[in-house]
Amino acid sequence: MTTVVLKTWCILLCAVFISAQVMPMPDFDLEKMRGKWYVSGFATNAKKFVTDLKAGMKMATAVMVPTEDGDLDLSYSHLKSDGSCFRMHHLAKKTEIPGRFVFNNELWANSNDMRVVDAKFDEYAIVHTIKTRGKESEFLNKLHTRSRKVAEDLKGKFREFSRETGILEENIAILPMNGECTEA
């Protein structure tokens, strides 16, 4: 039992170290993030993901708008199974490192350190976020795509990146297609 606990702690510490080393892509272009994206992949080390969330998750829509100050306005919408819409909005503030943004999520009471780690802006963007609440941190990787259809090689790339950042295979999801919320 003690060996299992020690191994688990080692894995968690390694994952924290790896995540802290994840840097934004070197040639990040804020303006190319502009527009509509589909949240096609979701991976996290959050404990409740597999037990409470993964089975019911479906593709969501994100709209990203760069501001004049170099920040990134993020609007998310998700069509729920009852036909209603869940919406969320954040203003991600730029940092001294291009492609790295920070914001607070009042709904979940956490601070977020978001990094665009890979992108072919007309096709996809892989975003790594460190979410901190109190003294605990979790990692979240999202695969944003311009199309609802996700190529197999891109799914593989997202899965590989997620595993490299310490996320277990069962905590990685390629989300099924979903309807979209109507504009409010």
Rank of each mutant, 00 (worst) to 15 (best):
M1S: 10
M1R: 05
K7E: 12
I11E: 07
I11G: 01
L13C: 14
L13K: 13
L13W: 14
V16F: 07
F17A: 09
S19G: 06
A20S: 07
M23I: 04
P24E: 03
M25Q: 15
P26T: 13
D27A: 12
D27V: 05
L30R: 03
K32R: 15
K32S: 13
K36T: 12
V39L: 15
S40C: 03
A46Q: 07
A46P: 00
K47D: 02
K48S: 09
V50S: 12
V50P: 11
K54L: 06
K54H: 06
A55G: 07
A55E: 10
K58R: 08
K58T: 13
A60G: 15
M64Q: 09
V65Q: 15
E68F: 14
E68D: 15
D69H: 08
G70V: 03
L72M: 07
D73M: 11
L74E: 04
S75W: 12
S75A: 15
L79I: 03
L79E: 02
C85Y: 10
F86C: 00
R87P: 00
M88T: 08
H89S: 10
H89R: 10
H90Q: 04
K93T: 08
K93M: 04
K93V: 05
K94M: 06
K94W: 04
P98C: 06
G99D: 00
V102A: 00
N104F: 09
E106N: 05
L107N: 07
W108L: 09
A109Y: 08
N110T: 07
S111Y: 09
S111L: 07
D113L: 01
M114E: 12
V116M: 06
V116K: 03
A119S: 15
A119D: 11
F121G: 01
D122S: 15
A125M: 07
A125L: 03
V127D: 00
K135Y: 12
E136D: 11
F139P: 00
F139S: 08
N141S: 10
L143V: 03
R146K: 10
S147I: 02
D153Y: 14
L154N: 03
L154F: 03
G156V: 02
K157P: 01
F158Q: 03
S162G: 01
S162V: 00
R163L: 13
G166S: 08
G166V: 10
E170W: 06
I174W: 04
P176D: 01
P176Q: 01
M177N: 14
M177Y: 10
N178Y: 05
T182M: 05
T182K: 11
E183C: 13
A184D: 12
